[in-house]
Lab assay of single mutants.
Amino acid sequence: SSGGSSILDRAVIEHNLLSASKLYNNITFEELGALLEIPAAKAEKIASQMITEGRMNGFIDQIDGIVHFETR
């Protein structure tokens, strides 16, 4: 797709992000992006959206560029 990722790509990214949230206590956007094979800024945006929508527990430290995952 030309304008970003398809629905399937997005679903795969979100699935992998949720998997990462179970493996890590926290991770930088750079590391997360590398893990998900997407730019760091996109990793931040998707993580932020999932947390806001209540689909993933955690919070974002924008100063240090880190996602902190919280286990249920």
Rank of each mutant, 00 (worst) to 15 (best):
V67E: 00
A43M: 05
S1T: 13
L23Y: 10
I60G: 01
I7A: 15
L23P: 03
N57M: 09
R10N: 14
H68G: 04
D9H: 06
F59N: 05
V67T: 01
T52A: 15
G4K: 05
I51G: 01
S6A: 11
S1Y: 04
I51R: 00
A43N: 01
S21M: 10
P39I: 04
V12M: 09
L17D: 01
S19N: 14
I13C: 03
K22Q: 09
K22R: 10
E31H: 08
V67C: 03
S2I: 12
S19M: 15
E53M: 05
S21H: 04
T71M: 11
E37S: 15
L18K: 05
E14P: 01
L18Y: 07
A34D: 07
E14Y: 06
K45F: 13
V12R: 14
E37Y: 09
S2K: 07
R55W: 06
E37D: 15
E53Q: 08
F29K: 02
A20C: 05
A41Y: 10
I60S: 01
M56H: 02
V12P: 06
S48C: 07
A41K: 10
D9S: 06
A43D: 00
A40W: 12
L17H: 01
D61S: 09
S5C: 07
I27A: 05
E44R: 08
E53P: 01
P39Y: 04
L35K: 03
A43S: 03
A11V: 12
G65Y: 04
D61C: 07
I51S: 01
S2R: 03
S19T: 11
H15A: 15
Q62P: 13
I63R: 09
I60R: 00
A47E: 00
S2H: 14
F59D: 04
A34L: 13
K22M: 10
Y24L: 07
G65D: 03
E37F: 10
F29W: 08
E44G: 11
Y24W: 07
L8H: 11
I38G: 01
T71V: 10
L23F: 09
S6Y: 08
E37W: 08
K45L: 15
R72G: 11
R72E: 12
H68K: 05
L35N: 02
A41S: 12
N26Q: 14
T52Y: 10
E44Y: 14
E44H: 13
I51K: 01
G33R: 02
E44P: 01
A11L: 13
I38S: 00
I46K: 01
E14W: 05
I66H: 06
I7H: 12
I63F: 08
A11E: 14
T52Q: 14
E31M: 10
E14I: 07
L17S: 01
E70G: 12
V12N: 09
N57G: 10
V67M: 10
E31T: 06
E70A: 09
G4M: 10
I7P: 12
T28I: 02
A47F: 05
V67F: 04
H68L: 04
A20N: 05
M50E: 01
E70P: 07
A40C: 04
A34M: 11
E70F: 11
H15N: 14
N16F: 12
S5G: 12
M56C: 03
S21N: 03
L35A: 04
L36E: 00
Q62K: 14
S6L: 10
K22D: 05
M50S: 01
E44S: 09
N57W: 11
I46S: 01
I46A: 04
M56V: 11
N25A: 12
E14C: 04
L35I: 11
R55E: 03
A47D: 00
Q62Y: 15
F69I: 02
Q62N: 10
A11Y: 10
A41I: 08
A40Q: 06
L17I: 14
K22T: 08
G58V: 03
A11C: 07
N16A: 13
S21L: 08
K22L: 09
T71I: 10
S48G: 10
L23S: 08
M50L: 12
D61K: 04
D61F: 04
K45T: 12
G3T: 12
K45I: 12
V12F: 08
G33A: 10
S1E: 13
I38Q: 02
E53T: 08
S5I: 13
D61N: 11
E31G: 07
N26T: 14
I38W: 03
V67H: 00
I51M: 07
T28W: 01
P39T: 13
A20G: 02
V67A: 03
S21E: 04
A11F: 10
I27W: 05
I38N: 01
I66N: 05
A41R: 09
T71P: 12
R55H: 06
T28G: 06
I13L: 12
M56A: 04
A43H: 01
A41H: 13
E30S: 08
E30K: 10
T52F: 11
K22I: 08
E44Q: 12
R72V: 13
S2P: 13
A41D: 13
E14S: 03
H68C: 06
V67R: 01
E70V: 10
D64P: 06
H68I: 08
G33I: 03
H15Y: 13
G4A: 10
N16Q: 10
S2T: 12
A43F: 03
L35S: 02
N25E: 11
A47H: 01
T71Y: 11
N26F: 15
E37T: 08
I7M: 13
G33W: 03
A11T: 11
T52N: 14
P39Q: 05
A20I: 15
I27N: 00
F59Y: 14
Q49D: 14
A40I: 07
H15T: 11
A47Y: 03
A41T: 10
L8T: 11
D9C: 06
A41P: 06
F59A: 06
H68V: 09
S19H: 14
A47R: 00
I13H: 05
G65W: 04
R10F: 13
A40V: 07
S21T: 06
S2D: 14
I13M: 07
I38M: 06
L32N: 00
Q49I: 08
E30T: 11
R72I: 14
D9R: 06
A47W: 03
E30R: 08
S1C: 07
G33T: 01
G4V: 11
E14F: 04
L36I: 04
T28E: 02
S19E: 15
F69T: 02
E70W: 12
D9F: 05
S48M: 14
I46M: 08
G65C: 04
F59W: 15
S1V: 13
M50R: 00
A41Q: 10
S6C: 07
N25S: 13
I27C: 05
I66T: 09
E53H: 05
G3V: 14
D9I: 07
N25K: 15
I60Y: 02
Y24A: 04
L36T: 02
K22F: 09
E53A: 09
A11R: 09
T71A: 11
K45S: 14
A41L: 09
Y24K: 04
R55I: 09
A47P: 00
N16L: 14
D64S: 15
I38F: 01
I66A: 07
K42E: 15
L36V: 02
R10Q: 15
G65V: 03
D61H: 06
L35Y: 09
K45E: 15
N26P: 06
L17T: 02
G4E: 15
D9Y: 05
L23Q: 09
G4I: 10
A41E: 14
L18G: 03
S21P: 02
A40P: 11
V12K: 14
Q49Y: 07
L8F: 14
F69G: 02
K42H: 15
D61G: 04
S21K: 02
F69A: 02
A40D: 03
L8Y: 14
I7S: 12
I38L: 08
